[in-house]
Design a protein around this nucleic acid. Structure first.
Length: 777
DNA sequence: TCATGAACTTAGAATACATACA
DNA sequence: TGTATGTATTCTAAGTTCATGA
């Protein structure tokens, strides 16, 4: 299977490099070596038991025990799957350059040769320039999160033991309080206020005004009864804008003839027309699904006439929407402002709710508009019509005692319920997968922040016992029971490679993607020896969002032998771990540690990797841009570990070229400036007076300034190049304990704004407030 | 024990907006 | 001031996990 793929070497590098950051691997290797003889003996022992288990299967039918009928279904579905087997939707195309550079970098880092590396690479210029970061002035700008130390909760002892505390107020008390507060107009907006221009007032401006107090929910007690809130009031969702029929001059043609469509059919046609430039509309599945659903919306006459999508001409519609979009861009300032004001009004009216006496920002307060379903990868349902959500489809969730949101005139909500065991405000069921969609709060809200904090505390708990767990699963590789061995090997992958759990999926409902537990035999290749390494496993599969995971990893011999065993007598499309699923795995993990699930390993490994990388990459004598580059590199190591990829920006090559032009120009300027210094010095030699001395100083300063500017540009270029196909945001937002970053910033005097933008600072306000420079994950 | 539904987190792409530069 | 470019925000799909009920 793998032979067909044209993997580049850099990908190979990436995998093993990231794994190097897992210290335990080396530790294990040592142990492996020590116990080699013992192991050899055991190998034969456990080998026998495996064969015993498998011999039953050999003699019996091929059925796997995992699903009573699941595996056989898989067999039956074999040809079907092959048909729909996705092309590698998105190649794991990390560039050769990034990886060779990056690999070298990390290897050097780990070997303790960081400074040597830097001297020999593009960053060597950074070290010579030692301008100390101006922390104070930058921090003063808009660091609204710096709070008096006296307010901060005690760290460490209570952070590690994250226990929800009781909420003080009873439901009715809170309701009364909320009402009273409303009457008093006492509820102040939590968010930073925007000025007329829509800019966020910065710290300086605010300092003049009354200082705005941020609610520090993390200093308050929490409910322990499973309730998520006591009082919830909101305005409901913003419905999708009604369909506006096309002007009469925008025509649709069928088979070359103009045809007036009914409003229903026309609306669906416009969804397709808006996507004409997108690759989706060239895909068979998309076109087939769209056409099928479109026909459902047609009047009978239209249905009998329009029978072939190829004969449909949506071009005028497409042009019309393009022109509209251009017109929007070309609008006058005033018109743009009007839109902005209207959006702001909507945000103020619908974008906030009151939850337990606090005004909280809602994340997605708009109902998803109708359109064509854009599934990722080879999604069998792409192109289907996402129907318009009506008030009758919508469930509202709020407090009994609150002012309920009004449904649009002449309509009714499906239901208004008062369930404080959940966090959502609004829900509806979408028609493509039958899934429930929710309107929930913004990440900066208490309800999301608490959960986030808790997530990292669970990961920190894992840190305390991870060695025990690792020893356990290593023991389990030798188990007599196949299910235990499979569980142990899967867990090893989840831990070592940060793979996702991998739930089972219903075939034909979504793209064929897998995670650890759902890996199939066809997704791995085993090499007893490859590229000078023993026991190499090659992974090649589509993970979440059909992002390709490709990695070649040397594993321990016992893992390798187990994998061989798991693959014995199986077809490529059979499950690798046929006696395991996420539910079994998580049940086991729960027994090992309270709150432990497969997902926690990803959080743990991501955060610990960041912490280690920051320690290794940051050198005290670096200046600010170099330190930030180090941070980004640490962040990047995590993103690679978690396989967070992005499509290379379309404008990447061009923007790199532009940057290079700037660098070249700066170099020219610099050499000119250096020449100026020389000649000024020569002048000074001839005529030793104060004026010439001053001229030399000025010119020297100009050189320094240019050197710094050049260095900044070069760092920027390096960072951008290394980042072109790696998405840092996902790990930053979801996997990295923010306290690690905050502590790093504090330790090195880096303004937090350099690491987190405004939204991120709002999300991580709790961490910014509580972490000190000595925080340890 | 298993299937299903519900609730919530994680994810990359698309789009809106801000800023730099000519 | 207009345009190009980079960054932030929004959007919503696609995961994981847990509860429930047969």
């Amino acid at each position: 299977m793998s032979g067909d793929h044209s993997h580049n070497d850099s990908q190979i590098d990436s995998g093993s490099r990231v794994n190097d950051s897992h210290k335990h691997k080396d530790k294990y290797k040592d142990k492996e070596h020590k116990h080699k003889d013992h192991k050899e003996r055991e190998n034969s022992k456990y080998g026998n038991s495996d064969h015993k288990e498998f011999s039953e299967k050999k003699h019996g039918e091929k059925e796997r025990t995992k699903h009573k009928d699941g595996s056989t279904d898989r067999h039956r579905e074999k040809d079907k799957r092959k048909e729909i087997k996705p092309k590698k939707e998105k190649e794991n195309g990390f560039s050769r350059y990034v990886f060779s550079l990056y690999c070298t970098f990390l290897l050097y880092t780990i070997a303790g040769y960081i400074s040597d590396f830097k001297m020999h690479n593009e960053t060597k210029c950074l070290i010579s320039i030692t301008s100390p970061p101006r922390i104070k002035s930058e921090l003063n700008n808009d660091d609204v999160y710096h709070s008096p130390k006296s307010l901060k909760r005690e760290r460490d002892h209570d952070e590690t033991e994250f226990k929800p505390k009781k909420i003080k107020l009873e439901n009715d008390k809170v309701d009364k309080k909320a009402k009273k507060r409303k009457q008093d107009e006492d509820i102040k907006p939590k968010k930073t206020q925007k000025n007329k221009k829509g800019e966020v007032a910065d710290g300086k401006k605010k300092a003049k005004k009354e200082p705005e107090e941020k609610w520090k929910w993390w200093e308050e007690e929490r409910a322990t009864d499973g309730s998520k809130w006591s009082f919830l009031e909101h305005k409901g969702p913003v419905m999708a804008a009604p369909y506006e029929p096309l002007p009469s001059n925008v025509r649709f043609f069928y088979d070359g003839k103009q045809m007036k469509l009914s409003p229903e059919a026309e609306e669906v046609a416009t969804f397709f027309a808006k996507m004409l430039d997108h690759e989706y509309t060239t895909k068979d599945t998309f076109r087939k699904n769209f056409f099928k659903d479109w026909r459902k919306e047609m009047a009978s006459e239209e249905k009998s006439k329009i029978t072939d999508l190829k004969k449909c001409n949506f071009n005028e519609m497409g042009e019309y929407f393009k022109a509209q979009s251009e017109a929007r861009k070309a609008m006058t300032k005033d018109d743009k402002l009007k839109i902005k004001v209207e959006n702001e009004r909507l945000l103020q009216e619908y974008g906030f709710c009151i939850m337990d006496n606090h005004k909280e920002r809602i994340a997605n307060f708009r109902i998803e508009p109708p359109g064509l379903f854009r599934g990722r990868g080879d999604h069998p349902k792409m192109g289907m019509l996402k129907r318009r959500i009506r008030p009758e489809d919508i469930i509202i969730n709020c407090s009994k005692g609150s002012k309920h949101p009004k449904s649009p005139p002449g309509t009714k909500w499906k239901e208004v319920r008062h369930d404080n065991k959940v966090t959502w405000l609004v829900s509806w069921t979408e028609n493509i997968q039958g899934a429930i969609k929710y309107i929930m709060l913004n990440p900066s809200s208490r309800i999301k922040g608490e959960k986030d904090w808790q997530k990292y505390e669970t990961a920190r708990n894992l840190k305390k016992c991870v060695e025990r767990l690792r020893n356990q699963y290593r023991e389990d590789w030798k188990s007599k029971e196949m299910r235990i061995r499979q569980r142990a090997v899967a867990l090893y992958f989840i831990d070592k490679l940060a793979l996702r759990a991998g739930n089972e999926k219903e075939e034909g409902e979504s793209a064929d993607t897998v995670g650890c537990c759902s890996l199939r035999v066809e997704h791995i290749n085993l090499y007893p020896e490859k590229d000078g390494q023993d026991f190499v496993v090659e992974f090649d599969f589509l993970g979440k969002d059909s992002i390709r995971y490709y990695n070649k990893v040397p594993v321990e011999k016992r893992v390798f032998k187990n994998l061989q065993l798991f693959m014995e007598n199986k077809q490529p499309e059979d499950d690798l771990f046929d006696r395991l699923n996420t539910s079994i795995l998580n049940k086991h993990l729960q027994e090992l540690m309270d709150g432990l699930t497969a997902k926690v390993f990803r959080t743990y490994n991501a955060s610990i990797t960041l912490q280690q990388q920051l320690k290794e990459l940051t050198s005290p004598d670096e200046n600010l841009p170099a330190k930030i580059l180090s941070y980004n590199r640490a962040n990047r190591a995590v993103a690679i570990l978690c396989n967070h990829q992005r499509a290379q920006p379309k404008t990447f090559e061009k923007s790199m070229q532009n940057l290079q032009t700037k660098i070249d120009a700066k170099k020219d300027q610099l050499s000119d400036a250096k020449r100026d210094v020389k000649s000024a010095k020569a002048d000074l030699k001839v005529r030793r007076d104060e004026k010439f001395k001053k001229a030399v100083e000025t010119k020297k300063k100009a050189v320094e300034r240019l050197e710094e500017q050049l260095m900044k540009l070069e760092v920027q270029a390096t960072d951008r190049e290394e980042n072109k196909q790696i998405a840092l945001g996902t790990s930053k937002l979801n996997y990295l304990d923010p306290r690690i970053s905050v502590a790093w910033c504090k330790k090195w005097g880096i303004p937090i704004e350099k690491i987190y933008n405004k939204t991120q600072r709002e999300k991580f306000a709790w961490a910014i407030d509580m972490a000190e420079d000595d925080y340890e994950f």
